[in-house]
Simulated scan of single mutants.
Amino acid sequence: MDVGTIVGILLGFSGIFMSMILEGSKPTAILLPAPMMLVILGTLGAAMAGGLLKDTTGSVKWIKTALLAKPIRPDGLVDELVKLADRARREGLLALEDAANEVDDDFLRKGLQLAIDGTDPEELREILDAEIVAKRTEYKQGAKLFLDMGGYSPTLGIIGTVVSLIHVLANLSSPESLGKLIASAFVATLWGVMLANIVWLPLSNKIGRLGELAVQQMELVIEGVLSIQAGVNPRLIRQKLQSLLPADPKAEKAKQEKAA
């Protein structure tokens, strides 16, 4: 599990609360139910109004994905593809049928099955490329939902402040309570901006990044499966796939090979 998003959100809130404490204020001063409810429910309502119902109801799935997603290890995928290529070269492509059923990656399993069934390479690429387009669209929609919420949230906070200021103006006859009422009025703006920049926009960026990594892995699978189908030497397949890896996995893989 990649805990970067969870740690980042907690760090953001911690910075805000710690700064309040250092300034002599109390974090509980901003934990007011009314402005928090207005901003959160208002943001969800605006997001729901701006898209399809299934997009908003699927937000829980995307939050879980962003917070609990497992780190993708493309170098591990390269090793798996090279092993499959070595077996196919020694025993033939049909020998991979049993191995394909044991593969955890659904996309890789489908690609291997298409290759084993004798699908034309161009047609195989078209089928798998279509799945990549669908995957990219899926993640793009998930990221857009939270991007929209990041735009709505500060505006809803301002609306909450205006609503509270109306209440302040209605109580001008009680000057002793004006300070507290005015301070409370700006809590909604704080929550709107805070949630946008610590929760909604970071979640959008995380989902977008996960989508990029998922697509990169799928593209790696396509090149590997097509190379296996063409009977390319496993060593050449490794070199080809490693050339497609980002810089960090390449460096890590080189260190491992050097140590071995």
Score class of each variant (00 low, 15 high):
11 L>W: 02
159 I>F: 08
33 P>M: 12
112 L>M: 11
210 L>I: 12
132 I>M: 13
225 V>F: 07
77 L>M: 14
15 G>H: 05
44 L>T: 06
177 S>H: 09
258 K>D: 10
134 A>E: 15
83 K>Q: 13
65 T>W: 00
46 A>R: 01
50 G>W: 09
14 S>L: 15
18 M>Q: 10
242 Q>V: 11
99 A>N: 10
127 I>D: 02
237 I>P: 04
147 L>R: 11
83 K>L: 14
178 L>Y: 09
229 Q>R: 08
87 R>Y: 05
251 A>L: 15
18 M>I: 15
32 L>G: 00
146 F>V: 03
52 L>P: 00
62 W>G: 00
161 T>L: 08
171 N>C: 02
57 T>Y: 09
238 R>M: 02
142 G>L: 05
134 A>T: 12
85 A>D: 10
155 T>H: 03
208 G>K: 06
187 V>K: 05
226 L>Y: 02
199 V>K: 03
197 N>H: 14
2 D>V: 05
130 A>V: 01
128 L>F: 10
229 Q>Y: 03
221 V>Y: 05
150 G>C: 08
29 A>P: 00
254 A>R: 13
143 A>Y: 01
194 M>Y: 01
67 L>C: 05
13 F>Q: 03
138 E>H: 11
8 G>A: 15
50 G>R: 06
9 I>S: 07
114 L>H: 11
12 G>K: 07
142 G>R: 04
123 E>M: 14
240 K>W: 05
193 V>T: 08
187 V>I: 14
47 A>G: 10
